[in-house]
Computed example of a mutant assay.
Amino acid sequence: MKLQPLLVAPLLLASCGIVPLPAVAIPDQTLTLPASSSAADRVIYDGSDVFGGSTVPGVLSNLKLRGQALYSGAGDLSSVAVYIRSSVPSCTSVPGLTVQMCDPSTESAQRIGTLNFEKGVATSFSLSGKALDAAAKAGHGYVGVQVLKGQSVFGDTLKLSNLKANAKF
């Protein structure tokens, strides 16, 4: 049977997490931001679930989330660190909003990248990391942001659109 080596090679490659799978569309997300002054040096989770209960099989890994980021509002925000969790954290809540503000030192394992953008200009991004893999496998992904550069004003938004997730087998 000379076919055996031909069948084993793809299985070995697949087990290494290098076989890319087709991208899956994810619904757009709009994060409503509080004023930076009230959220100074905090990770802000607004309670939006990026995956909405859709899970990926446990054998998949190296998930990448790609899309466009568009910042709108009166502030001058230009850079945020992005975090993701499979459940909404219990941190400090903001009265009148469904926002949780967490200490970044407790969230470092949840960080999946940085977005740099210009107000009013849609900017491409790609995010990845173990926290993104875990959230996708759990079927829930609550996105948080931490201001790195600039200021947001109450009511400013960060829209994540044309979202596509792909993983490797």
Rank of each mutant, 00 (worst) to 15 (best):
V145Q: 03
A25P: 11
F125L: 01
S126C: 13
P95F: 01
V88K: 12
L7A: 13
V121P: 03
Y45P: 02
E118W: 07
I84P: 03
Q29R: 14
Q4I: 15
P10I: 04
N162E: 13
S126A: 13
S93D: 10
D46M: 09
D103N: 13
D49A: 06
G113R: 01
Y83L: 12
A165W: 00
L163A: 07
S37D: 12
Y71S: 06
L115K: 01
V145Y: 00
G75D: 07
P95Q: 10
V59Y: 08
G52N: 15
S48T: 15
D76V: 05
G150S: 08
P57I: 08
K149H: 12
L160N: 02
S108H: 12
K159V: 03
S90R: 09
S128N: 08
L12S: 13
S72P: 02
L70Q: 06
P95L: 03
G53S: 10
A35W: 02
G75I: 02
P57E: 10
A131F: 01
P95R: 06
C102D: 05
S78I: 04
V56A: 11
L70W: 00
G47Q: 12
G17S: 08
D133N: 14
Q29I: 14
P89L: 07
G53Y: 08
V8W: 10
T30K: 02
P57F: 02
Q100S: 07
L7Q: 12
L12N: 11
A40G: 09
S93C: 03
P22L: 11
V153L: 09
A109W: 11
T123W: 00
A9V: 15
D49H: 05
L132F: 09
F51Y: 14
L158V: 00
T32D: 11
C91N: 04
A138K: 06
L70G: 01
G120L: 04
V145F: 02
